[in-house]
């Protein structure tokens, strides 16, 4: 009875139910992440606990970001497994394309296709960092900038 009530209330969105479970008792997720509604969305992958800071791109910005990626030469280097700390920027476009940008590597994925790009001048990362300034709290931007610029 209790579970039936839970299912009804969760399905109605009354409770903030998100299925998950504990290890050794896996259950499927009940809620999906919302689709990108704006032309593009940038998030900073640097936290472990806090939610990644994110902001929407305008149409022009989304297009500029896409063109910037496409202007890069194809590369072979992959993004390393950084662990704790700054791990790059994530750019998601409304058409489902996604780019991961970390230092001189950009990984563009769309559907089943993934392409690695070499960004020797770190132009994409710098473009994203510049755009981050107006979207992040000052102290957070300083922390991000410090991480991006660290050797």
């Amino acid at each position: 009875m209790a579970r039936a009530l839970w299912l009804v209330l969760c399905g109605a969105g009354v409770w903030g139910c998100a299925a998950g479970g504990t290890q050794d008792a896996p259950t499927p997720a009940r809620s999906e992440r919302s689709e990108v509604m704006s032309p593009g969305r940038v998030s900073v992958d640097m936290f472990s606990g806090r939610e990644p800071p994110a902001w929407a791109l305008t149409t022009d910005e989304a297009q500029a970001a896409r063109e910037l990626v496409k202007s890069l030469p194809v590369g072979t280097h992959r993004i390393p497994d950084v662990g704790l700390g700054y791990r790059g920027f994530d750019v998601a476009w409304a058409d489902g394309a996604h780019a991961k940008v970390y230092r001189d590597v950009v990984v563009l994925s769309q559907g089943e296709r993934t392409v690695l790009y070499q960004d020797a001048g770190r132009k994409m990362e710098q473009w994203l960092l510049t755009g981050a300034r107006s979207h992040l709290a000052p102290e957070l931007f300083v922390a991000l900038e410090s991480q991006v610029q660290s050797p």
Binding site: F47, S48, G49, R50, P52, L84, R87, E139, A143
Partner: peptide
Amino acid sequence: PNTDYHWYRLAVNGHWCHKPGQTAARNYDN
């Protein structure tokens, strides 16, 4: 400091494991 928090959990064999944000859970440090 002033930026974020992180948690570790003790697993079997005396190994601490963790999940750095949205990245993979793992048994190794940086």
